[in-house]
Computed example of a mutant assay.
Amino acid sequence: MTAGGQDIQVVVFGLGEEEFGLPVASVREILDHRTAYRVPNAPAWFLGLTDVRGLSVPMVDLRVRLGMAPADATLATRILVVDVPVGRETPLALGLVVDRVLDVSTFAPGSVEASPDIGGRWRSEQIEAILRRDAGFVALLDAARLFGSDGHDTLASLAIAA
Rank of each mutant, 00 (worst) to 15 (best):
A108T: 12
L146W: 01
I118K: 07
G48Y: 01
A3Y: 11
P109A: 05
T106Y: 10
P109R: 03
S149W: 11
L92Y: 03
L75T: 08
D32N: 12
T154S: 04
A144W: 00
S157R: 11
I30T: 09
A71M: 14
P109V: 05
N41L: 02
Q6S: 11
A162G: 14
V86S: 13
V12G: 04
R28K: 10
R38Q: 04
A73R: 13
E125V: 12
V112I: 15
E19R: 13
V12W: 08
V24D: 00
I130G: 15
R78E: 05
F46T: 00
E89R: 14
Y37K: 13
I160T: 09
L15T: 08
V86L: 13
R38Y: 02
A76P: 06
M59Q: 15
G119N: 13
L131M: 13
W122V: 06
F13V: 04
P116E: 08
G4I: 13
A114C: 12
G4V: 13
A162T: 06
D32Y: 08
L55T: 08
G14R: 12
V39Q: 08
F46G: 00
S56P: 04
V101L: 11
L62M: 09
F20I: 01
F137C: 06
S149K: 15
T77G: 07
S105F: 11
L94W: 01
L155I: 13
P70E: 14
D134P: 06
A69W: 02
A144C: 00
H152G: 01
W122R: 05
P58C: 03
V84N: 05
H33W: 15
R28D: 11
R78A: 02
Q6R: 15
T154M: 04
P85T: 06
T74R: 11
P85L: 09
A144V: 01
G151L: 07
I8A: 03
A42P: 00
R123A: 07
D153C: 05
P23V: 06
A3F: 10
I30W: 06
L75M: 09
G136Y: 12
V39T: 10
L22Q: 03
A42H: 02
D142P: 02
E125P: 09
L66P: 02
T77S: 15
G5A: 06
G67C: 10
L62F: 02
V98M: 14
F107T: 00
T106L: 05
G48T: 04
V64Y: 14
S105I: 04
H152K: 04
S111E: 07
S124V: 10
V27C: 13
S26E: 08
V60R: 00
V98T: 14
P23T: 12
V97W: 01
D117F: 02
S26M: 07
Q6W: 04
L131R: 03
L96P: 02
P85E: 04
G16M: 11
L47F: 05
L102M: 07
R63M: 05
P58A: 06
F107Q: 00
V60E: 00
R133M: 11
P85Y: 09
L47K: 11
A42L: 02
A159G: 11
D61R: 12
V98A: 15
L62R: 00
F46W: 07
F137D: 10
R63W: 03
G119V: 12
F137Q: 12
A76D: 14
